[in-house]
C-alpha cells in the first residue's frame, strides 16, 4: 500500500516532469527595439526565458533594464520586434490584436503598480469587470467577485469605491480582480511600488499564499530585493539581457 502523501508527491513529481519538458510560457530569442537608426534602443536583446506552471518568478533589474518590457510581452500587452513567444504552446506573434485580447481575457490576470481600478466604481464592480467581458451571468458574476474579495481579505468592503480604500486595500481589490477569472498567469508589475513596507509585506504574503494554495503561476516585476525573495525564482535583467536566473532561498529551504 502506498500512503496518500506518497500518492500526492508522486503526482507532483509527474507534473514537474511534464512541465520540465513543456514550459507554460516560453520566450525564444525575443528582441524589442524602440526607434530607428541612430536613436535605436534595444530594450531586449535575444532573450530566452521559460516560465513553468506553479512558479512565482520575481523579475528584477534597474529601470531601463528591460524587465518591464519583457513582462509586457509575457502578458501579451506588447509584441516583440523579433523572436517567438509561445503561450501554452501558441505563437503569440501570429495572433491579431483581438486574439491577443481574448488571450488576456481568458488566461492572464494583471496587477499594476498604480492599482488601475476604475474610479467611482465599487470594489465589487471592479472585480466583476473581467467577468462582464467573459459574458458570465450576473448572479454568478456577483458570487465569484464576492468570493475573490473574501479571499484577499476584503469581505464587507464590496461597496467601497477606490477613493474610500487605502492603497493596500486598493491593491487587494486589484488582486481580486486578477484572480476572479482563475487565470493561468498572474502578472504583477511592481505591485508594492506605491505601498509602505508593512502593506507591501501583506500583499506579498497574499501572493505567496495564492501561489502555494492555488498553485497560481505568478510573474512579478520588482526592483526591491526583499520583495523578490518572496518568489520561487529570481530573474535579473540588465541592459536588455538576463544576467542571472536562480531559485530563491524559499525554494532551497
Amino acid at each position: 500500500m502506498v500512503s496518500d502523501a506518497d500518492q500526492v508527491s508522486e503526482r507532483e513529481a509527474a507534473i514537474r516532469a511534464v512541465n520540465a519538458i513543456t514550459p507554460w510560457f516560453e520566450l525564444k530569442q525575443i528582441s524589442k527595439i524602440y526607434g530607428h537608426g541612430e536613436s535605436e534602443v534595444r530594450a531586449l536583446d535575444r532573450i530566452d526565458l521559460s516560465i513553468y506552471a506553479g512558479e512565482f518568478v520575481s523579475v528584477m533589474g534597474t529601470s531601463g533594464s528591460g524587465k518591464s518590457t519583457c513582462m509586457n510581452i509575457v502578458g501579451c500587452l506588447d509584441v516583440p520586434t523579433s523572436g517567438t513567444y509561445l503561450f501554452h504552446g501558441v505563437d503569440v506573434g501570429k495572433l491579431d490584436r483581438d486574439q491577443q485580447a481574448l488571450l488576456r481575457r481568458h488566461y492572464i490576470g494583471f496587477v499594476f503598480q498604480g492599482f488601475n481600478l476604475l474610479a467611482r466604481t465599487s470594489a465589487l464592480e471592479n472585480v466583476e469587470l473581467p467577468l462582464v467581458y467573459r459574458r458570465v451571468a450576473k448572479s454568478e458574476r456577483r458570487e465569484r467577485a464576492m468570493r475573490a474579495l473574501a479571499e484577499v481579505g476584503l469581505a464587507g468592503r464590496e461597496g467601497h469605491t477606490p477613493a474610500e480604500l487605502s492603497g493596500g486595500q486598493q491593491q487587494r481589490v486589484a488582486i481580486a480582480r486578477a484572480l476572479v477569472t482563475e487565470p493561468s498567469l498572474l502578472l504583477a508589475d511592481e505591485p508594492t511600488g506605491n505601498l509602505d513596507s508593512a502593506r507591501s509585506e501583506e500583499i506579498m504574503q497574499l501572493l505567496v499564499r495564492l501561489n502555494m494554495e492555488r498553485s497560481l503561476t505568478i510573474a512579478m516585476v520588482t526592483h526591491e530585493p526583499d520583495m523578490a525573495e518572496f518568489g520561487t525564482r529570481i530573474v535579473t535583467f540588465r541592459d536588455g539581457h538576463i544576467i542571472d536566473d536562480q531559485p530563491t532561498k524559499r525554494m532551497i529551504a
Binding site: R97, D98, A101, L102, R105, G109, F110, Y133
Partner: peptide, 19 residues
C-alpha cells in the same frame, strides 16, 4: 485622460477594441 486610462484598463483585462 481619465477615459484613456480607463480604456487601457479595460483592454488590459481583455476587452476588445470594438467592445
Amino acid at each position: 485622460t481619465e477615459r484613456t486610462r480607463e480604456i487601457g484598463i479595460r483592454i488590459a483585462i481583455g476587452a476588445l477594441g470594438r467592445e
